[in-house]
Write a protein that binds this DNA or RNA. Sequence first.
RNA 1: GCCGCGUUCGUCUAGAGGCCUAGGACGCUGCCCUCUCACGGCGGUAACACGGGUUCAAAUCCCGUACGCGGUACCA
Length: 487
Amino acid sequence: MSTRVRFAPSPTGLLHIGGLRTALYNVLLARKTGGTFVLRIEDTDQARFVDGAEADILASLAWAGLTPDEGPGSGLTGDGPHAPYRQSERTDLYNAAAAALLDAGRAYVAFDTPEALAAMRDRGDAYSAATRGDLDNSLAVEAGEVQRRLDAGEPHVVRLKVEPGRTVAFTDRIRGDVSFQTDGVDDQVLVKSDGLPTYHLANVVDDHAMAITHVIRGEEWLPSVPKHLLLYEALGHTPPQMAHLPLILAPSGGKLSKRNAEKMGIPVSVRDYVGAGYEPEALVNFLGLLGWNDGTDRERFTLVEMAEAFSLDRVHKSGAKFDLDKLAWLNGQTLRERTAAEIASRACAAVEARVGPVDAERLAVASNLMRERLVFAHDLADSPYLFADPETYDEAGVKKRWKADSARLVSVYADRLAAADAFTIESAEAALRALADEQGVGFGLVVHPVRLAVTGVTVGAGLFETMAVLGRETCVRRLRTAAERLA
RNA sequence: GCCGCGUUCGUCUAGAGGCCUAGGACGCUGCCCUCUCACGGCGGUAACACGGGUUCAAAUCCCGUACGCGGUACCA
């Protein structure tokens, strides 16, 4: 049987970084096994539904290269063998399942008011075999009365009837053997009073209906596995394999909540990573390594490479803290392998915002020149001198490097460059070295003032490589201007 | 509180009884390279939560404790 995995987010907001990682691990297993990656939208909570959230989920997955094989959205939807992929469009399935459960005596209806439930919790009780006899449900009330209230349209829910005294055991692909006593499992609501299913029912019904073979999801779901297993059993279905992923933690230790993350400067929604200029491949690489490795020292993977090396057996059990520094490093590493044109296209907007319209060819050569020094493509905008003459000169640099006769030396150098036959990296350097020799000064005494004059700053790529990118005219002009201004 | 899961350098991790005087990476840091800054190269810093067992031998197996995290909704 071929592997079928699914990512099943709720459209309650922008796709969270943790959600992206869950999707990634699903994709990894699907690609590794030649299986299918399904996207299912779990929109059963009307109160938390956010318009546009589904579009964001789709866009975020696509950006990261995790496009579903089956799921809602144009080009994918109606044709999928298990459509529809939105739970709000599959309510008949859940109703049928609930009816079957009721018929089989594995579920019952309950009329308890929110107030009554709150009072129960205040008592420290759970809705279970020990307490349901004292509550307002079809197990405690006469059948005729139940029917009368149902006919009268009284609001009610359907609850799973959990038998006490049983042990529910299973082998999680990541955590190993796990077991729960049913005494500690409460009678989960399956169908809410608005007629829509809860996650638990819809999830079990759909995973079966969509022939899902592996449920790979966050660890926060581990405690609800017994409920799900009991549901599969009651419905007469074979449960899929379970794999509960470790959580991504904030650097401070807690859950990577929006508030927690933003305090540490960590973007929380995928859209924010896009906006911050991260390379999707770097983020995917980083996320994959947060809880998994291939057993070697390898740290750089493309999605395809990671899928080849992937195995659920090597996924960790413990949570991993988010390390923004490592992500940044990975981003720089990834960027270096990009072509000049790719870096240029990513950096273009930031550069133009800084210096105005720039020439595409210039942008490309500048990208190539600076590639080893960039963490983000937009960092290229931090070197505006590659596109426009400097208007000011780094104060500390001038103080340290601009000496008494710097203006004269820079000016002579400008004249030589202007008069030379050629203007190349080699010739520019040779000319400056010759000048230093003639004047009997150290190379440092000429090279630093020249850099300051040409770029306005003290840091950057090789001076002569930089000058070659700028061109002779520009260099000569900048040298002369600086000689005047800093005289 | 109860239930469940977890615990190797600051962080991500290797480690599946002897190969571990615990390896790699990020970060921090020293040196080299060098026109600066990076890159790169060579070093350094720094960890098996604690206590009992089992064993000739434990980071690795068992038990307990501590701590952390998750769950405990008509949210997912």
